[in-house]
Design a binder for these strands. Structure first.
Lengths: 179, 179
DNA sequence: GTTCTTGCAAACCTTTTGCAAGCAC
DNA sequence: GTGCTTGCAAAAGGTTTGCAAGAAC
């Protein structure tokens, strides 16, 4: 089946770069591929992977996802939930539009046209295009109508709107600041 | 000066919705406005605000930023660093293009044209447009040339590429999952 | 046999929260 | 005076890491 092919591709990529093929990595990759429509989080991945091998540890999930990410084999999707979700690159782009006030998310129309536009933008900068999910913030009509009259946040406020921010372990690398 | 006007606007917005004007909130708002080109993080904000009033606590920064965010007065920018940065809405959009492999970030050209395109997309969905920074992932030419031959990540890999993921306190609300 | 990987548990770090004191109105 | 806000310190919770045991090659 399709996912067999896909996962072979991933495994070859790993091998080619000198990484070992462990059963854990196989399971995680397969899980990622079989659930590629779902934007799995680390926790989703853990549950799915542990259904196949309950001994897989969370650290292995993180390390594998990190590895695939660094190899360019996995995209991060930020839903402003306080953690990332994943998607395989090399598929169609998706466009999410979410309301800054109430948090509602919709899938935008005409993704193919929009993808072509983004691709053009990227290539104009001499970068190589990578299909991904783009999240655009806006205000839905309902919230816009109710807006300045209503007190939309009963104090004490928290949660950065609907999203949350991120903590993480010891930093290193990173993409530099500003500019 | 300009920032005086801006901050009056913010203060009025707070008052109008029944929130109190404290000296801490004033400082944080002023700092945000005076550094609006810089995409400050909570830590940047803390340093800047504490230069004016060393007793301001980090919790107040978070609570204020949360409040402004819920009121639609502040946008979150995710640089995949493991925490958010902030920007004031109501300004020009910015477009960042970053390399998925090496993490390099560039500012894209023709932001005005691109902004018009995004505005059109948003309004086609009957949402109200909000200027913001959009981050687009891609692969830079250099990394693309070096790509499959090089082992770009010496094991053990970590850091989700160059970015990091997020942890957070107790959740609540949220934007739902998938779909 | 050597070197990379894993699992566990502890460490990290950002963000949130409980609570008593303080301040805005 | 009432009740929102603040600061502190502790808790929360996602992610990373040190290390010894195990697996891939």
């Amino acid at each position: 089946m399709l996912s067999g092919k896909m996962s072979d591709q991933y495994k070859e990529e790993l091998k080619k770069r000198g990484f070992r093929l462990t059963s854990q990595r196989e399971i995680i990759i397969r899980t990622l591929i079989e659930n590629s429509g779902k934007h799995c989080s680390v926790n989703d991945l853990r549950e799915l992977a542990q259904a196949e091998d309950p001994t897989i540890g969370i650290a292995t999930i993180y390390r594998t996802v990190n590895l695939l990410s660094r190899l360019g084999l996995l995209n991060l999707v930020n839903m402003e939930e306080g953690f990332y979700r994943f998607e395989l690159p090399g598929q169609k782009m998706h466009f999410h539009l979410y309301c800054r006030i109430c948090g509602k998310v919709i899938h935008m129309e005409d993704e193919t046209d929009k993808e072509a536009t983004v691709k053009k933008w990227v290539e104009e900068e001499a970068f190589h295009f990578l299909p991904q999910t783009l999240e655009i913030a806006a205000v839905c009509d309902e919230c816009h109508r109710n807006f300045p009259e209503n007190n939309i946040a009963g104090p004490p406020c928290s949660g950065f709107g609907h999203g949350r921010m991120g903590g993480h372990g010891r930093g290193q690398g990173g993409r530099g600041r500003w500019r």
